[in-house]
Amino acid sequence: MATLSMQLSSETKELLPGVVLLQQHSQTAGLSGPRVSLSDGSCQATALTNIAASYGSGAVVPRPPWRTLAGSDVATLVGAEPIEVGQWVAIVQVPERILRHFRAIRDAGLQNKSADVVFQLAGSEEYALGLRELLAEMTARCCKPRYDGAGINTRPTGLSTCTVNSNTGLLTGMHVDTFYSRELELRALSPNRICINLGAEDRYLLFVNLPLREMRRQLEQLGVRDARINDTGRGLAWAFFESFPSYPIVRLRIAPGEAYLAPTENVVHDGSTEDKRLIDITLTILGTFAPDTFRDGL
């Protein structure tokens, strides 16, 4: 991994070089707003009284307002070279030949059906056929897809972040995945994920554009030495947000029929349904996706 030399302060509002957004295709039709926007930093969910009760203790969320990506932040985030392993995010268009198998689920989203209805449809033979075709496509491209630990998910509307702690039923806020639980130095080599928007509206991917190693380096340069900086579960992320509350969170808009690819074991992230009116539906698959895998689409 290339050494990043810039040093953050508690007031930094500009993006540092790190995780890059690859421009995989040019489609922007159907987007109701800018593709990328930045938060005004982060804060604990308890600071936002309208959502505080829905979150677990210590949970961190993006701090509004949002601003459109502009100026030097564009060059920092979009399409930088070289592309480091585990340090890139991409959007791809899912072709109709695959999406057609999920039409019943997509129609359920358009009609704002319940999560129970969506999961019932996910048990159909048509869904299974679509999934087999999708996995075969990924296998042919040497992506080593895995279906365990992933699948169809639904989320309610209006959530600043949308991942729920299954033990408490409360929202987790910004977090890093731990399916593989690799040590920090190997996090960038973890499999990544593809997440397809099967809903009827745009949704968001939220992420901090710094890999975990860089987050820890920034904390060490600031003089933070407590045990949290070695806790890749959540301690490192919470220490970073506490020390750099003005650092922006990236919000990436994903249109219906699009998918994002992201190294969710190596970046702090979450989804968001904040502007949605209809049920949020996604299909997620873990795998080993390279930057060039879907350069011409799925």
Rank of each mutant, 00 (worst) to 15 (best):
E220T: 09
Q221V: 03
L222Q: 11
L222D: 05
G223H: 06
G223A: 07
V224F: 12
V224C: 15
R225Q: 14
R225S: 14
R225H: 08
D226R: 07
R228Y: 04
R228Q: 13
R228K: 15
R228F: 01
R228P: 09
I229H: 02
I229C: 04
N230S: 12
N230Y: 14
N230V: 00
N230P: 00
D231E: 11
T232M: 04
T232I: 15
T232L: 08
G233D: 15
G233Y: 14
R234I: 11
R234P: 00
G235K: 13
G235C: 06
L236W: 11
L236M: 14
A237R: 11
A237Q: 14
A237F: 10
A237W: 07
W238H: 15
A239D: 06
A239G: 01
A239T: 03
F240H: 05
F240D: 02
F241E: 09
F241T: 06
F241S: 09
E242D: 15
E242H: 06
S243K: 01
F244N: 08
F244E: 05
P245I: 02
S246G: 07
S246H: 13
S246M: 09
Y247Q: 01
Y247I: 06
Y247V: 07
P248E: 10
I249R: 02
V250W: 05
V250P: 04
R251F: 01
R251P: 00
R251Y: 00
R251E: 01
L252I: 06
L252T: 06
L252G: 04
L252E: 11
R253E: 01
I254E: 02
I254R: 00
I254Y: 04
P256L: 12
P256K: 14
G257P: 12
E258L: 02
E258W: 06
Y260W: 15
Y260Q: 02
L261T: 05
A262N: 06
A262L: 03
A262M: 08
A262Y: 08
P263A: 14
P263D: 10
P263W: 11
T264H: 07
E265D: 12
E265L: 12
E265A: 08
N266T: 03
V267A: 00
V267N: 00
V267Q: 01
V268I: 15
V268P: 04
V268K: 04
V268L: 09
V268S: 05
H269K: 09
H269S: 10
D270S: 14
D270I: 03
G271D: 04
G271K: 04
G271F: 01
G271E: 05
S272W: 09
T273C: 07
T273A: 10
E274C: 05
D275E: 15
K276P: 01
K276R: 14
R277F: 10
R277I: 03
R277H: 13
R277G: 09
